[in-house]
């Protein structure tokens, strides 16, 4: 896996083919909860990417020290450390975003993507490829969030990145920014992804 070519392919796979939320179905909680506006979604995506990359790097670096039986608690400590760093830094420099993401910042700790990548990839691979894997997965997660929040914000609030798109006569589909809209959008997105994947397979 230290081969540059495969490292690149793990990176590229994470973004779309193995998109963590749309194919692997990991990290659904923040996906649903923080996608009511594009701004929140991007903030969440960046925070999760930072944690993914840093914890992948550190777990990969420590992989020869961390004992096999104790690996899960060790992973959790490493991940929780970076989550807390994000938490503190965000509270200090971006209080608005910090407030709207709320409980979902500390909950990155139990985001299955981060722990899953630590276990499935970083614990078995070198630092460089683990970092690339983290970046790929992080971007994949952010892309998923971005797609979902774009749909939800445009339909549910008539705006994009808080900029109103339509005139005052537009009456938004409020349900889209409420919880049912989140479940529905994700359902349709995953269906779309599986449709595209299937069509691609047929074509190849």
């Amino acid at each position: 896996m230290s081969n540059g070519n495969t490292a690149w392919s793990t990176f590229a796979d994470g973004i779309w083919k193995n998109s963590p939320t749309l194919t692997l179905l990991l990290g659904m909680c923040p996906m649903l909860a923080t996608s009511s506006s594009v701004m929140n979604a991007l903030g969440m995506g960046m925070a999760a990417t930072f944690v993914l990359v840093m914890s992948n790097i550190f777990i990969s670096a420590l992989r020869n020290i961390i004992p096999k039986q104790m690996r899960i608690p060790c992973f959790i400590v490493v991940i929780a450390t970076f989550v807390t760093i994000v938490d503190l830094v965000m509270a200090a420099y971006s209080p608005g975003l910090y407030k709207s993401l709320g409980i979902f910042i500390p909950l990155i700790v139990v985001n299955c993507i981060v722990l899953g990548r630590a276990e499935a990839f970083a614990y078995k691979n070198g630092i460089a490829s683990s970092m690339l894997d983290g970046v790929g997965m992080g971007i994949g997660f952010t892309v998923g969030l971005f797609l979902m929040s774009t749909f939800r914000e445009i339909l549910g609030n008539g705006s994009f990145l808080n900029l109103p798109l339509f005139g005052p006569s537009f009456s938004p589909v409020l349900i889209m920014i409420m919880p049912p809209g989140a479940f529905m959008t994700l359902g349709f997105l995953i269906a779309l992804k599986s449709y595209l994947d299937k069509r691609q397979k047929k074509g190849a």
Binding site: P179, P180, F183, G187, A191, S194, K198
Partner: peptide, 23 residues
């Protein structure tokens, strides 16, 4: 149901309707 909705997608849409009911 259409092939592409089988499994998780239809489950999420079900959850959406349940969530609507809970509202």
């Amino acid at each position: 149901m259409p092939e592409m909705f089988k499994g998780i997608p239809i489950a999420l849409i079900t959850a959406s309707i349940l969530s609507m009911a809970f509202m």
